[in-house]
């Protein structure tokens, strides 16, 4: 199943659906499709119709705000002479939470087709559509993403904490989680 074909199908059949190809730099060459979250559920139903009937893995990733430094070369006129100058440009990429789905086809024995969805930011805009109505295997894994990262899945049949206890208020797998100082040894800096 070639990713570009899947992308073309998605864009053709769901109007307004933004699908971007995210290229993977490593030798594994597993590129992925970034689908916008408004059309997430529709896209999932279409993918299931393409016989991608097995959702193997649902992963949540935390991307905090980061600063990307790019060096841009540009030609500028300095003292009447055209020179090539290198400028350092810093762009701040806002933080977001991301969920990655790995889809396989059991009937055609193909895969993986990797699909991603991103939230708006890490604080208040953290809802994503739940793909549990399409693939039941996402049920526990989306609950885990909610428990450990704080992503709220719309349409999940039973969204509550799965690994930590009810009443726990932190999202431990986020990059900025600080564990409680419950140990005299650690508070004294002794490991």
């Amino acid at each position: 199943m070639i990713l570009e074909d899947v992308r073309a199908r998605l864009q053709a059949e769901i109007p307004g659906c933004q699908v971007d190809l995210v290229v993977n730099g490593s030798p594994s060459a597993q590129n992925s499709l970034l689908i916008d979250r408004q059309h997430g559920l529709e896209a999932a139903r279409l993918l299931r119709g393409l016989e991608l009937d097995y959702c193997s893995n649902v992963t949540a990733v935390d991307w905090p705000e980061r600063v990307q430094t790019d060096k841009i070369k540009s030609k500028q006129v300095v003292d009447g002479v055209e020179k090539e100058i290198e400028q350092t440009v810093k762009t701040t990429i806002p933080g977001y939470l991301e969920v990655v789905y790995h889809l396989f086809s059991m009937s055609k024995k193909e895969g993986p087709v990797v699909v991603r969805m991103r939230t708006g930011n890490r604080t208040d805009d953290v809802t994503l559509p739940s793909l549990t109505p399409v693939w039941r295997s996402a049920e526990f894994q989306e609950r885990e993403a909610f428990d450990l990262y704080g992503i709220v899945f719309d349409g999940h049949p039973d969204l509550r904490r799965i690994l930590m206890w009810e009443g726990f208020t932190d999202y431990p797998m986020r990059r900025d989680y600080v564990p409680p100082p419950d140990d005299d040894l650690e508070a004294l800096g002794e490991r």
Partner: peptide, 19 residues
């Protein structure tokens, strides 16, 4: 290198994958 990979095997319990 910067990138990602998903590798899976048939473990005795089922499909064990690492992302």
């Amino acid at each position: 290198k910067v990138g990602e990979a998903y590798g899976r095997i048939e473990s005795p319990k089922g499909e064990l994958g690492f992302y």
